[in-house]
Computed example of a mutant assay.
Amino acid sequence: MLTPIIITFRECLEMLLIIIPLIVYLHKIYRTDLSKYIYAGSIIGIIASLISGKLLIGQVNNLEGYAEQIFLGAMMIFLAGLILYSIIWVGKQSKNFSLDINQKYNVKLTAFSLLLLSFVTIFRESLEIIMFLLPYAAEFNITIVIGIFIGILASLVLAFILFKTTIKLNITILFSILNLLLILIGGHLFGEGLYSIFPQFGESMSTAGQLIYSLPLLFIFIKRQLRKYLKK
């Protein structure tokens, strides 16, 4: 259950940190008439991601035998690569999690731009959730569903606290903790992916894959965090 909670919480929080400040900003400049385009884009994004997820899960469930193993193994390795990209490349770009509305947005406030921004945000993050949960499609059960709902609920609660109270929460620290957990998830996915593709090597392939993936990434992550705090 832990993996669905972490993945869903992180991706949903990223959505909310884009959509909610934008709605607040429109209220601040007395352009609430444009809010409907954000809601419309968000709804279209959710529908599009659900349709895409259904198609992807349907394709996975149609696979059998070794073909299913190869596909799931390749998908796990691909997802581990996504985590690697997220932590190494996006972290290098100093991704901005600021809640300062004036600093965060510098876009033309047109119906199309707001519709497109909200659609792309919701669709991209929702599709990432679906892809991360795709390897579990064959064993999709109530535990995974509960994990998804807990992740969504936790992100909504945190977003509400951030924008309705005066609490000072360092979002960067929160995402650093989530990234640390994602490294461990990525190591598990990478190891299991190798084991699915090369089952003849036994469980040792899974263990070796986890160590090869996790140890260097943990070293880079910890080194980067220490460098940030030493500068402060």
Rank of each mutant, 00 (worst) to 15 (best):
A67V: 04
C12N: 02
I43K: 09
N102I: 08
I222P: 09
I129M: 02
N102T: 04
S52A: 13
G193V: 11
T121A: 13
S98W: 01
F149W: 05
L153S: 15
L26R: 02
Y229A: 06
F132E: 10
I197A: 03
I6R: 13
M131H: 05
S113D: 08
L174V: 14
S176H: 05
I29N: 06
I122K: 05
I173S: 10
I185P: 08
F132V: 14
G186P: 01
M205N: 03
L215M: 15
E203V: 10
Y136P: 01
F123N: 06
V60T: 12
I130N: 04
G187P: 11
E125T: 10
L180A: 11
I6F: 14
S42P: 10
I185C: 04
L114K: 08
Y25P: 04
A137Q: 10
T32Y: 06
I144L: 15
I101A: 11
A137W: 07
S204I: 15
I18P: 05
L117D: 03
S42L: 13
N179F: 10
R31G: 01
A137K: 12
V145N: 04
T172Y: 13
L158A: 08
S214F: 08
L13G: 06
Y195T: 00
N141R: 09
F201T: 08
S126N: 01
E64P: 01
S214C: 12
M76G: 00
L114Y: 07
L116H: 06
G187H: 11
A67W: 03
F198D: 06
L115S: 07
G81F: 14
I88E: 12
Q225D: 00
I171R: 09
G193L: 03
K54A: 06
I23P: 04
G193T: 01
L189R: 03
K231G: 01
D33Y: 01
Y66N: 11
H27R: 15
H188A: 10
I167S: 07
P4F: 06
L56I: 15
I20L: 09
Q93R: 14
L178Q: 02
V120S: 06
G58S: 11
L169T: 10
K228D: 02
Q200T: 05
G186T: 07
S206E: 14
F112R: 12
I43G: 07
F132W: 12
I7A: 02
F149Y: 10
F149Q: 03
K164I: 00
T32Q: 12
A48Q: 03
G91T: 11
L174Q: 04
S206D: 13
N61W: 03
F219V: 14
K231Q: 09
A138I: 14
I18N: 12
C12F: 10
L226Y: 01
P21D: 01
W89M: 07
N179A: 08
L13V: 09
S98Y: 00
